[in-house]
């Protein structure tokens, strides 16, 4: 039996621009044209000023770890060979937070407050998701 693959995200009409950006390796998050607020996940009105006029704008991809955990028992077979792996909440430089893994380092190296940058994982030919890795040295955010 082949190993089950990670569940690919299922876009909806409102989030399709985000996933389209992912396929181009761009992290797009809504920006309000009235008050400049950024937010995530996408919604069609601005959570700050309630305006409806927004655009998809690229984020810097840099942020820092707000909190994290190291998972030792995976929730399903698709993740069983990944343990131990890091699940973290990242605060982007633009303000919004998101949930991700921290990759390309040992879980022992991860800490709260650590600067990170986005990288991209292609789950299927159609689905790419953001992942975060320690910010390369000398590139202090």
């Amino acid at each position: 039996m082949t190993k089950p693959s990670k569940p690919a995200p299922v876009p909806d009409p409102e989030t399709e621009p985000y996933w389209e950006g992912m396929r181009r390796r761009e992290l797009l998050i809504p920006r309000c044209r009235s008050c400049s607020a950024r937010w995530f996940p996408p919604s069609t009105s601005c959570p700050a000023c309630s305006g409806f006029d927004y655009e998809w704008a690229a984020a810097s991809g840099r942020g820092e770890i707000v909190t994290y955990t190291v998972v030792h028992r995976a929730p399903g077979p698709a993740f069983a060979d990944q343990t131990p792996y890091v699940v973290a909440i990242i605060q982007l430089a633009e303000g919004p937070r998101l949930l991700t893994n921290v990759v390309e380092c040992s879980p022992d190296e991860v800490s709260i407050g650590m600067p990170v940058e986005v990288t991209f994982e292609e789950i299927t030919a159609d689905a790419t998701v953001p992942q975060f890795r320690p910010l390369a040295k000398g590139e202090g955010g």
Binding site: P11, T15, F40, T69, G76, Q82, V87, T100
Partner: peptide, 28 residues
Amino acid sequence: GSVYAGGSQFEAAYGTFAPALYALYAQR
């Protein structure tokens, strides 16, 4: 074999489930 795992399109790929999400609070 089923688990009650987080399933939204912005979570499903990261191997999260309730213990990991509460662990994020515990760690902080």
